Simulated assay, not measured.
Amino acid sequence: MPLLPGAEPYRHRGGPVGVLVCHGFTGSPFSMRPWAERAAAEGYSVSLPLLPGHGTHWRDLNTTRWQDWYATVERGYLELAEECEQVFVFGLSMGGLLALHLAAQQGAGVSGLVLVNPLVRMPGQSHVALPVVRHLVPSLPGISNDVAKPGVEEGGYTRTPLHAAWSMKQLTKIVQAELPTVTQPLLLFRSPQDNVVPPPSGKLLMDRVGSTDLTERLLERSYHVATLDYDAETIFDGSVDFVRRLTVPVTKG
């Protein structure tokens, strides 16, 4: 199946500091490309992979599980780690969940995390029925395009595949248990008006994560896909400042 427009993975070879960028569930690199390009413009080596089952059709996503998505994230990390002295991880929504799992697994190999509206806890109560409902219907209406800025679309699926959603739920349980072991510096950007991942998810992260270098910044003008919304530059500027604080300066190029 051909890729949707803008869903292509992105790679930039820059300096000795690497940035791995992780997109969200039913999304694609399209929603993260501006953030990745800003990191590249700062001179960082950047990897923005396309997660399995994404960027084509929602039915493809229903044939994959969290282990497949994580394997792609881990591979992107290992490639950067081979050529870079430090690696930071940026993530949106489920991309933030995968980033946290990577941080728990890799320890000091991950120098820091910048997360935007990360999914750490499944929203609402509808997910409780996933073990049964996923065998009855393949999908439900999608969660994409939660953007306050008029006319902006993230290029995500219009349906939520339920087998894949059930697998994502399994990963949330794993990561919740791992949070105390995540001790890397962490910068959290959170939208108070998020129609996909509500505030309890961010609160759970802040309460349980083991990081002592921990900062939360609110995105008052943006919804869930804040990387394409009114506060995008706030995210980009803040993440660059975060990386600069934790690394030696790099040369742009």
Rank of each mutant, 00 (worst) to 15 (best):
A129K: 04
V19N: 03
Y223P: 03
K173M: 07
G95S: 10
R208K: 13
S139Q: 13
Y10R: 03
P198C: 13
V46H: 05
L113T: 05
R121S: 13
L187V: 01
A165H: 03
L205N: 00
V132L: 14
S93W: 06
V19H: 08
L3K: 03
R134E: 13
L246S: 01
G15H: 10
V133F: 01
Q193N: 13
A108C: 04
Y70F: 15
G210A: 12
A104M: 06
V250P: 04
A103I: 09
P198D: 14
V116D: 03
V240F: 05
R65S: 14
T227Q: 02
L162V: 08
G91Y: 12
L246V: 00
S93P: 00
E37N: 06
P123M: 14
P180N: 10
Y230E: 02
D229P: 01
L4D: 01
L97V: 08
R13S: 14
P5Y: 12
L92P: 04
G107L: 09
V73S: 01
E85V: 11
R190P: 02
V110C: 09
A148W: 02
R221Q: 13
P138A: 12
R13A: 14
K173Y: 12
D207Y: 06
S47M: 12
G43R: 06
T72W: 00
L228M: 15
T234N: 01
M168T: 11
H101I: 05
L136Y: 05
Q105Y: 00
L204G: 09
V87H: 10
D60T: 07
D241F: 03
V110D: 04
L204F: 12
A39L: 13
T181R: 12
A41Q: 09
H54I: 00
E154C: 15
Y77P: 04
R65W: 11
V89F: 11
R221I: 09
P2V: 15
Y77I: 06
E8G: 11
P185D: 02
M32T: 05
C22V: 15
K169P: 02
D68E: 07
T251W: 03
P141S: 06
L218A: 10
L113D: 01
Q67V: 15
P180F: 14
T26L: 04
E42Y: 08
H101P: 02
T183I: 10
V196A: 12
Y230G: 01
Y77T: 00
R59I: 00
D237A: 15
E82S: 13
D60S: 09
N117W: 13
A7G: 09
L171Q: 09
L162N: 03
L136S: 05
L130T: 05
F189R: 04
P141D: 02
C84P: 04
D229I: 14
M168Q: 08
C22G: 06
E83A: 14
E82D: 14
T64Y: 10
S167I: 13
L97T: 08
L48T: 07
T26F: 02
H12D: 08
P141N: 04
W58K: 05
F189M: 04
L51I: 10
C22T: 15
H163Q: 12
S191M: 12
T72A: 15
R13Q: 14
L130I: 06
L100R: 00
R33A: 12
E37H: 10
E83R: 15
I143D: 00
W35I: 14
E85K: 12
V116H: 07
V87M: 11
L4K: 14
H57V: 10
L188R: 04
G55D: 03
S239Q: 08
T251E: 11
L78N: 08
K173E: 15
M32A: 07
G18K: 15
A104I: 07
V46N: 04
